[in-house]
Computed example of a mutant assay.
Amino acid sequence: MAKIYTRTGDDGDTGLFLGGRVSKADVLVEGYGDVDETVALLGVARAGAAEPDLAELLLRLQRELFVVGADLATHPDRRHHLTDGVSRVTSEMVLALEELMDRLVSERPLRPVFVVPGTTATSAALDHTRAVARRAERHVVAAREAGHAVSEPVAHYLNRLSDLLFVLARHAAGEVEEPASHD
């Protein structure tokens, strides 16, 4: 039986996809760690989703975030081995998020008020997921600024994903959502 632990990371580094190692404290690892956390939080939201269409969409987003993670965690000299939509984020993936947001907002326009998360368990989970996705985006931008190979579609995808999660949280909250107090 194979063991789950390898001991290869005991010295504080971790393996990159397609070879190579990097410090676990590297900002790039922070970025794809946040992506992994976003996947897990989408699972929480999906588990509580009452609407099958929402659950299906959240599962799709989880799978797409595996692509984001693979794209980020790939050894920079081996990116040419990646496959569009499987291990490399594409502009089409970003466009699909934009089109979905446009459709959702046209179906139910967003109210121009500050929203306090927590109207429903699913909307709260989506707002939590959105906050972590924003953190992932910040870490990925920092990684790019530190010289890591971060593709433009990855950065755009994370930015659009957090916007989409905001829209989905408002939809999951329904019509009962109350604006925040201005006191």
Rank of each mutant, 00 (worst) to 15 (best):
L57N: 00
D13L: 06
G69L: 02
V29K: 04
T90F: 08
G69H: 03
D163S: 11
E175L: 02
P109A: 02
R21D: 13
L82M: 15
V176A: 15
S91W: 15
L168P: 03
S162H: 03
L104S: 06
A146Q: 00
R130E: 04
P153S: 05
A180Y: 04
L165Q: 01
V22L: 08
D34R: 04
A47W: 11
S91N: 15
T119I: 05
S123C: 08
G174R: 03
V44Q: 00
R46S: 11
R63S: 13
D84Y: 01
G147Y: 03
F166W: 15
E99D: 13
A55R: 08
H171V: 08
S87Y: 09
V132D: 09
V141A: 00
R138F: 11
L57R: 14
D71S: 06
I4S: 13
E30D: 14
Q62W: 15
L158D: 10
P109E: 07
H128V: 15
R78T: 14
T129I: 06
R134T: 04
H171A: 00
A173I: 03
V39W: 07
V150I: 00
E152M: 01
F114I: 14
R144Q: 15
H171K: 12
N159D: 09
P179K: 05
A146M: 00
R108V: 06
A96W: 14
A73R: 01
A125R: 01
L54M: 11
R79G: 10
T74V: 13
